[in-house]
Design a protein around this nucleic acid. Sequence first.
DNA 1: GACCAGGCACATC
DNA 2: GATGTGCATGGT
Length: 219
Amino acid sequence: MSKATTRTLRQFYDAMYKALGPQKWWPGESPVEIIVGAILTQNTNWGNVERAIANLREAGLLDWRALHRIETPRLAELIRPAGYFNVKAQRLKNFVEWLCRRHDGDLSQLAKIELGRLREELLSINGVGPETADSILLYALERPSFVVDAYTARILRRHGMTFSGYGALQAIFEDHLPSEVGLFNEYHALMVAVGKHFCRPKARCEACPLRRFMHDETA
DNA sequence: GACCAGGCACATC
DNA sequence: GATGTGCATGGT
C-alpha cells in the first residue's frame, strides 16, 4: 500500500474520465448476455463477438435453459464469428452446466456467496480464467472484483510500473482504490478505451489522455 | 500477407 | 514459476 500509487491511479482515472467520459459498460443488456460475451471475447475482437451474440439472440439462446438444451456442435456453428468456436462452445457449456448443477440455473443464488469463494468457484470451471471470472463478477454480478487485461498491463508498463502475473497487476488496483463496483466498472472500461485507441503496440502516445504522466517519452 | 484482438488450458522445462 | 503451443475468425 502506498499513497503515491493511490494518487497516481486516481490521476489516471480522472484524466481518462475527463477525456473520454463514461463508457457505459458492459455493452450487453442482461447478465446472461454479459457472461456469454465475457467468454466469447477471450482473445477476440469485440466486433466478432457481437456477430456471434446476434446469432445467439436470433436463435433464442440468450437464456440458460436454452443454452443447456442445445447441442454443442450446433452452438459452435452459431458462435463461429467469434473465433475458437469449438473451444468456446464447450466453455459456454461448462459454465451453464456449473450454474445448473450447482446453483439451480439461477444467478441470483450467487449473491449470497462470499466474493472470494465465488471467484474460486468460477475459476474451477474449465475455460474460466482470472479475467473472465472477474468480468463476470464485476459486470454481470456487480461484485467489486477489479478486471485487468492485456491493455491494463501495457498501459502500466509504459508508465514504468513493474509487476508479474495477473494477481500482482490486479492487486495494484485493489490495494490502492476503494472497493466500489461503480469505480471498478468505469476504470477497467476506460483502460480498454485508452488501450484500443491510444496505447497501441509500437504506437507513440501523442494524443493519449495519460500522456502527461509519462516520465520518459521514449517508453 | 502479417499483425492484432477485452484468454485459457495444457505440456514442458 | 516461466515459457511455448493450439485454438480461429475478421478487421486493418
